[in-house]
């Protein structure tokens, strides 16, 4: 309780970290539900990793091109990281989604390879990089410690944008995800809506990776959505429940991690896993629960 009061106090030292984790916790599941429903779960695993490779590549650019980042290395490094992360995740989701649609080859194999190579590459690049020292390796491990006001603002702004787009275009995004054929017969431009959805997913993922790291990002993308899917009867319940599970776990995770002096990211993900397991058991036991009929 003492810890809780401390975390909630406005002059708590790691205040920005709490806010950022909770924001990410709330927002990742909002796009995660689409990944789960469109059977792109593997994409949710690969994408954050690819996005963090983007960060690593961007931060290696000064090294390769022989210029140095001025100032304290933080602001310009952050902008560079932001651009790298966005470029990689947006390109990756568009290419991978396109290949997925064509339905050739082995999507799982492709995504699995992309994941593992991206993970190895980002660690490799950052370990050779002087800027890697400034918290980026921590980020890859899932330590949410250094969140600047700038980071927090960027996260909040991106998430507001994603939230607004998801709300405004809910009906189109639902239609192309649930019944693409019908969307076409109704004269909707399905490619446009698909790309918009992928852009929103890519944007959220890059933001999450930049502020909390790939491990938490994919934990929050997938596990809350899978948990909510066990109980949800309609899309509204599905989205709200997933988002709620994500946000609450993010807060709880921070609390537990702070209390026991553990890294936040891994704590969050382990908690999410435990919640999913408990939810799965509850869903099996509840009579008349729609989750029972789903084959997840």
């Amino acid at each position: 309780m003492e810890t809780l009061r401390l975390i909630l106090s406005p002059d708590f030292l790691l205040r920005n970290s709490v806010y950022t984790s909770v924001l990410v916790g709330f927002s990742c599941p909002l796009v995660g539900v689409f990944l789960v429903m469109r059977r792109l779960v593997f994409m949710g695993v690969a994408l954050p990793q690819i996005s963090s490779t983007g960060v690593a590549v961007a931060l290696s650019l000064p090294l390769w091109l022989g210029f140095s980042l001025t100032g304290h290395g933080s602001h310009s490094a952050h902008v560079l990281a932001f651009v790298g992360s966005m470029t990689f995740s947006l390109t990756a989701i568009l290419v991978l989604a396109f290949l997925e649609r064509r339905g050739r080859g082995q999507p799982e194999g492709r995504l699995g390879t992309a994941y593992v190579v991206a993970a190895a590459l980002s660690i490799l690049l950052l370990s050779k990089n002087p800027y890697g020292e400034i918290g980026w390796l921590d980020l890859l491990k899932g330590e949410v410690i250094t969140v600047s006001n700038f980071d927090l603002l960027l996260t909040a702004a991106t998430l507001a944008l994603v939230l607004a787009a998801l709300g405004l275009f809910h009906k189109e995004l639902l239609l192309v995800s649930f019944d693409r054929a019908m969307a076409i017969t109704l004269g909707k431009n399905v490619v446009f809506w698909d790309v918009l959805l992928y852009l929103l997913i890519g944007l959220t993922v890059s933001m999450a990776v930049l502020s909390v790291g790939p491990l938490i990002a994919f934990g929050f993308l997938l596990i809350p959505a899978l948990t909510a899917h066990l109980f949800a009867r309609n899309m509204r319940q599905f989205t709200m429940l997933a988002s709620l599970v994500g946000g609450a776990t993010a807060f709880l995770g921070f609390w537990v991690a702070y209390q026991y002096d553990a890294p936040v990211g891994p704590t969050d993900v382990v908690l999410l896993g435990m919640i999913y397991a408990a939810a799965w058991i509850i869903a099996r036991c509840l009579p008349g629960n729609p989750g029972k009929s789903h084959k997840a």
């Binding site: 405004l168 275009f169 189109e172 639902l174 649930f178 019944d179 109704l186 949800a232 899309m235 997840a296």
Partner: peptide, 21 residues
């Protein structure tokens, strides 16, 4: 598996007549 209700699915039939927003 999609968590949509009967009403939600049937309402999709009207989407063709509804523009953006």
């Amino acid at each position: 598996r999609f968590p949509v209700t009967v009403v939600e699915v049937v309402t999709m039939g009207r989407y063709g007549r509804l523009g953006w927003l």
